[in-house]
């Protein structure tokens, strides 16, 4: 995995190569973002700017996952912080789905402080 082509999903922060997003979509939010095969959506809903890598092995048993709100996701690579914002349409969809969107840009961490 070269670091270059990696992108992080703005919704779940999963980190994958762009090609993987294209082939398989996002393992967690495919149903909402439908990234598979959709380059445009990939560009919109994922970001190349992210910080901190988390290799998630056991989402349920991990405090890190809980803290990062990754505990319902599938194992894989996640980012600690993703810079970027979801496009408004997508945000709307997300909200319609009844999901509280927590931005992954580090604001979550500040709530605590």
């Amino acid at each position: 995995m070269s670091t270059r082509s990696l992108r992080a999903c703005l919704l779940c922060s999963v980190v994958q190569a762009e090609s993987v997003f294209k082939q398989q979509g996002c393992p967690n939010c495919e149903s909402i973002l439908s990234l598979q095969g959709n380059i445009e959506n990939i560009r919109d809903c994922t970001s190349t700017v992210f910080e901190g890598l988390i290799a998630l092995n056991d989402p349920n048993g991990s405090w890190v996952a809980k803290w990062q709100r990754l505990d319902s996701y599938s194992p894989g690579m996640y980012a600690m912080k993703v810079v970027g914002v979801l496009p408004d349409e997508i945000l709307k969809t997300v909200e319609e789905e009844g999901i509280t969107y927590v931005p992954r840009d580090g604001t979550g961490g500040e709530e605590v402080a």
Partner: peptide, 21 residues
């Protein structure tokens, strides 16, 4: 089917300070 959910709404609602280790 739970795993396939995107951002878990119930998890997101819990403020992080309650998630302290």
């Amino acid at each position: 089917y739970g795993r396939n959910r995107a951002a878990q709404s119930d998890a997101a609602v819990i403020p992080q300070r309650l998630l302290l280790p």
